[in-house]
């Protein structure tokens, strides 16, 4: 009886330890949480809030890796592609700049981007988004 349980228990031990090497699930979870239509709610540049009260901006990250950006104030729709590689969100229309995903919980999204300032240092921009309906972006 004792022998009967030894092998399954040992095999279970192997499969419990093995996944510890991988962070694949975390990447997949972020990718899943990125998908949706998002409304821009705030922008901070080097920690200072930018007034976006008069601006209505939306982005959509589609499951098929199509990216849409809609400036509802100007009525301008931009199309591109997106990927999540090296723990960064790459949007074809913004490359070579890419985004660090600070938060992606399925309801809110927070993206950080670094750009050179005139002195050669970095300007940090953080954009916060809230999940909204697909109808916000006309196609």
């Amino acid at each position: 009886m004792k022998i009967k349980y030894t092998l399954p228990l040992a095999v279970l031990l192997v499969f419990t330890l093995f996944p510890a090497c991988e962070d694949k699930n975390e990447t997949e979870e972020i990718q899943t949480n990125l998908v949706g239509t998002w409304r821009l709610t705030s922008v901070q540049t080097d920690g200072a809030a930018t007034d976006i009260a008069a601006y209505a901006g939306f982005i959509r990250l589609q499951e098929n890796r199509i990216f849409l950006s809609y400036d509802a104030t100007a009525g301008v729709l931009t199309r591109g592609g997106w990927s999540y590689e090296g723990n960064m969100l790459n949007i074809s229309t913004d490359l070579p700049a890419a985004y660090y995903v600070l938060r992606a919980d399925g309801k809110t999204l927070s993206l950080k981007r670094q750009d050179f300032n005139p002195g050669g240092g970095l300007t940090i921009t953080v954009r916060d988004y809230q999940l909204t309906g697909d109808e916000q972006i006309p196609e």
Partner: peptide, 10 residues
């Protein structure tokens, strides 16, 4: 010269 290397390979 400033060189910014980011983890996405750019």
């Amino acid at each position: 010269l400033s060189l910014l290397i980011e983890p996405n390979g750019v």
